[in-house]
């Protein structure tokens, strides 16, 4: 069966199948960007591991950050099945030629931000990622199945952090509200530009890479999240929010901010990338030592 027939029959494309150049390029770009996001996404949370308020919270946060590393690795492995090398993808990230999700260019100022990231950022990621489990490219879809299974723990632990704060002192509740105020709009931007301005959407839908439009997914996220904010007793910072015909009508985020952060002008762009590059360079001796040891053992066995 040729490529288009497989797509039309909602079948899966596998690594060594013939595929259009554009399909391969689009997937490499998207999967790499997704992998980079997981890896950079470790930073805002890693920032709080040493300051988590209890041993329980610290253990949970370490497990979560380790999961993000794992997600990055599943995704780099999926990208490599398309004929690229992970080392080259890392170079593209480190030199700024490939992007990662803009959401990680915002700082985590308080402990409540760790709750907000789990609840909102991972919540938005789940809404984006669940349809990717049915993506037409087999290795990407399979990686997403693993990722989605693990994300639901991430979202619940975030909600639990906020729920605990919201049932604590007035100061703790105010801290939770402040986190929601700052993370709400960037979370809405995670679904990308509005459908009218989305450059890659149409082709990606035709190829079965994308299953729903940005605006559809954004609406799904808002409908899911607003009632959860009510349970927390927090106010979503949108005066235009009304419930109508089974959906919450909401104010669109300011997309000029999204474009600006994508361009590199967010609060933490430089810090995130510099930290990533330094971590990679600082780890070089470990990779070299492991390779030298492997070579020595191989030489002895020969």
């Amino acid at each position: 069966m040729d490529f288009q027939a497989t797509i039309d029959a909602d079948g899966r494309i596998e690594p060594r199948d013939a595929m259009p150049d554009g399909y391969r390029k689009t997937l490499i770009r998207q999967i790499a960007q997704h992998a980079h996001s997981e890896i950079i996404g470790m930073q805002p949370e890693g920032n709080w591991i040493s300051r988590a308020p209890s041993l329980r919270r610290k253990a949970i946060l370490m497990a979560k950050v380790q999961d993000e590393a794992g997600h990055g690795l599943y995704l780099y492995a999926a990208a490599e099945t398309l004929g690229v090398d992970r080392a080259d993808l890392l170079d593209l990230l480190h030199s700024g030629r490939q992007k990662y999700s803009s959401i990680f260019n915002y700082p985590t100022l308080t402990w409540a931000d760790i709750g907000a990231i789990g609840w909102l950022v991972d919540g938005a990621a789940i809404v984006n990622q669940v349809p990717l489990c049915r993506c037409s490219y087999g290795p990407y879809a399979r990686a997403m199945v693993r990722v989605c299974k693990e994300e639901s723990f991430h979202q619940r632990q975030g909600f639990e952090i906020l729920y605990t704060l919201c049932n604590g002192t007035p100061e703790q509740k105010a801290m939770a509200q402040d986190a929601l105020d700052r993370w709400w709009w960037p979370s809405l931007m995670m679904f990308g530009p509005p459908d009218t301005a989305s450059t890659h959407s149409e082709q990606s839908m035709a190829w079965g890479i994308k299953r729903h439009s940005n605006d559809e997914l954004r609406q799904r996220f808002v409908d899911m999240t607003v009632p959860q904010a009510d349970v927390l007793g927090l106010r979503v910072p949108d005066d235009g929010l009304v419930y109508e015909d089974g959906h919450y009508r909401f104010t669109e985020p300011d997309y000029t901010e999204l474009y600006d952060v994508v361009k590199g002008n967010g609060p933490c762009n430089q810090q995130r990338l510099a930290h990533r590059v330094k971590a990679h360079e600082d780890g070089a001796w470990v990779r070299e030592a492991a390779a030298a040891y492997a070579a020595k053992k191989e030489a002895r066995a020969a």
């Binding site: 497990a63 380790q66 999961d67 794992g70 690795l73 599943y74 492995a77 999926a78 490599e80 099945t81 992970r86 399979r142 990686a143 693993r146 990779r287 492991a290 390779a291 040891y293 492997a294 053992k297 191989e298």
Partner: peptide
């Protein structure tokens, strides 16, 4: 799935951490 490692022993350890958490 797959992963990178310098030798089989490291590949096994990495596989444990990446695929069986």
């Amino acid at each position: 799935g797959s992963l990178h490692a310098p030798d089989a022993t490291m590949a096994l350890r990495n596989a444990r951490d990446v695929y069986t958490r």
